[in-house]
């Protein structure tokens, strides 16, 4: 599995670039100030919205998740009985490991020492962010995200988002112009 260079230093640099500090994170949602740019919320012990946002970024490796989408995901996930514990546990373990300046290994890597529940939850969160649909065997399936589901980032430029985007008459006769 390819690894990515997300380190604690990079996280902190990103936060500084956003003009964010610990005071800011303890008092004000970063989403309101930054139009959606989120990263890690370090140092809190409760699974706040900011912690959830940070964890989402660490799991998906997307550091610009949409603020409204984060809020919607958070609301649904926090309804799960074990979610607070898993969010907290995963967040701490990932942040802790990154503090060793290691690149983020695969979520399946034993280095994380995730519990079974945390491993499941990490996959659950990743799947929901990408599909935009919440699946849980004990809860109703529901769509949480549409155009902000991460699958559409992956195919941006090669396929229109169904219902919302169009390519224009006849554009389908040629391959899309892909911006590098």
């Amino acid at each position: 599995m390819q690894k990515i260079g997300i380190t604690r230093r990079k996280l902190m640099k990103t936060l500084l670039a956003l003009g964010a500090g610990s005071v800011f994170f303890s008092t004000l949602s970063p989403f309101a100030r930054d139009g959606g740019k989120v990263w890690a919320f370090l140092g809190d012990s409760t699974p706040s919205l900011e912690t959830f946002a940070a964890l989402s970024s660490l799991i998906t490796l997307h550091d610009d998740l949409d603020a409204d989408s984060i809020a919607r995901m958070y609301k649904v996930f926090m309804d799960e009985p074990w979610a607070p514990e898993h969010i907290e546990g995963l967040h701490k373990k990932i942040i802790g490991a990154l503090s060793d300046e290691k690149k983020r290994p695969s979520l399946k890597d034993p280095v994380w020492k995730f519990t079974d529940g945390e491993s499941w939850f990490a996959g659950h969160l990743l799947t929901t962010w990408y599909l935009g649909i919440y699946y849980h065997e004990e809860r109703p399936t529901q769509r949480i995200l549409y155009e902000n589901a991460l699958q559409f980032r992956a195919i941006k430029g090669v396929m229109p988002i169904p219902y919302l985007e169009n390519v224009g008459y006849g554009a389908w006769t040629s391959p899309p112009e892909i911006k590098k």
Binding site: T60, L61, S106, L107, L126, L131, Q151, I155, V158
Partner: peptide, 27 residues
């Protein structure tokens, strides 16, 4: 795209290669 993404996730694909895998499958 949805089935492609689901299938890749089910097979254990994850970031950072997930995006390029979805794109490659979809096209």
């Amino acid at each position: 795209h949805f089935e492609a993404t689901s299938d890749l996730l089910e097979k254990g694909a994850e970031p950072p290669s997930l995006d390029s895998a979805i794109r490659d499958r979809v096209v």
